[in-house]
Design a protein around this nucleic acid. Structure first.
Lengths: 197, 197
DNA sequence: CAATACATATCAAGCGTTCGATATGAAATA
DNA sequence: TATTTCATATCGAACGCTTGATATGTATTG
């Protein structure tokens, strides 16, 4: 038989689909447009995916995971401390073209999930998982005296959660040149979490 | 000739369209589904709107303006002070079914604007206008000693902007019963803005 | 009667999906 | 090695359906 790596072929399709979503919106993701963008026929799509919805979800996952991955990589670097947060937050925001693409797809996913219960469930599960992880990290920092303890770890976690989503959404609307400056207030905000000397 | 108030008829259509968007997503807003929901024929739609896009935008505006209106009403009540912020923020969040509906539509609008330059421009203009208004209010409160002055009015405004968007997005994913509690951390956060006694 | 409001019928375009035909190349066989 | 076999990969035409738009007809009402 002819050798083609199914998984990587599926990823190629997912990436192309994500690009289409980011650039022209979910409504522009049609089987024909996707095939053209991939330089293949629509038959290929049905060979690797059983439906268009499966492609859409694969595209969402592709972009979503890449944001998470970039943040995880930032977390892995250096020892946990307050200063350690800065590059992590930065990694999670749409500050360059790559992360911009992924965030555009993620924003589409957020809207999609509002009316697709499977995606909604997945979204909520992922959120909760990440929430617990982060709250634990923050609690640790507090116990080490690296973080103010007069605000609960849960409150800080909630702020972070909402803030990243909102910041990302608002950053994506701006030209790249303005984004770094617009995001910097976040770092001044984090500075406020330093324990009183 | 027959007398029908054009404006209010258009608003009926816009509201029905917004409901459809909120409940089943923008893709479910078809001329036929909308006509059925209104209990009329598609002839009515073309009589009051020149295209479907016009209906979509009317629906977006309808929901968007209602959130803004509810916040403005909250602003109008009482004298400007830090405590005055609480009901305003509350008015801006999707805490009941009405505001939930509107926020669902607004989230659709945010995604829509990513790939429709007219809506994008409108969105940015409105944001900037509101941003300036709010920054002015905050600066005033600072001058009156009602607000900490060691954080710039611009930074506080940016926090508020991003936070409301993110909080709304995350609240909408939850059952109503959990929302008040989830939003309360915002008020504890605002408490942190009180000037040191 | 004239103008408006609305219903109905119809259209072409575009959608996701299906499916038979064909191309490819690894494995089986002689 | 040469030949056959056949699962896989790709193609693209065609299908049934839905879409937004519009043309035409019919009440209703001032």
């Amino acid at each position: 038989m002819r050798k083609v790596d199914h998984d990587s072929r599926r990823e190629e399709v997912a990436e192309a689909a994500a690009r289409l979503i980011a650039e022209k919106g979910l409504e522009a993701l049609t089987t024909r447009a996707l095939a053209k963008s991939l330089g293949c026929s629509i038959g290929v799509l049905s060979h690797y995916f059983s439906s268009k919805e499966e492609i859409v979800i694969a595209a969402f996952r592709w972009a979503d995971q890449r944001i998470d991955l970039r943040m995880q990589e930032a977390v892995a670097h250096g020892n946990p401390s307050l200063d350690h947060f800065f590059p992590v937050i930065k990694a999670g925001l749409p500050l360059d073209e790559e992360s911009d693409l992924e965030w555009r797809v993620r924003l589409n996913l957020h809207t999609f999930a509002l009316t697709h219960s499977d995606s909604l469930r997945a979204e909520r599960d992922k959120d909760q998982q990440f929430h617990e992880l982060m709250e634990g990290m923050i609690r640790n920092l507090q116990q080490q005296g690296q973080l103010r303890s007069d605000i609960s770890a849960e409150d800080i976690t909630n702020v972070a959660f909402d803030l990243v989503i909102g910041a990302a959404k608002n950053l994506v609307l701006r030209p790249f040149a303005e984004r770094e400056a617009r995001a910097e207030y976040l770092f001044r905000l984090i500075e406020q979490l330093r324990p009183p000397a």
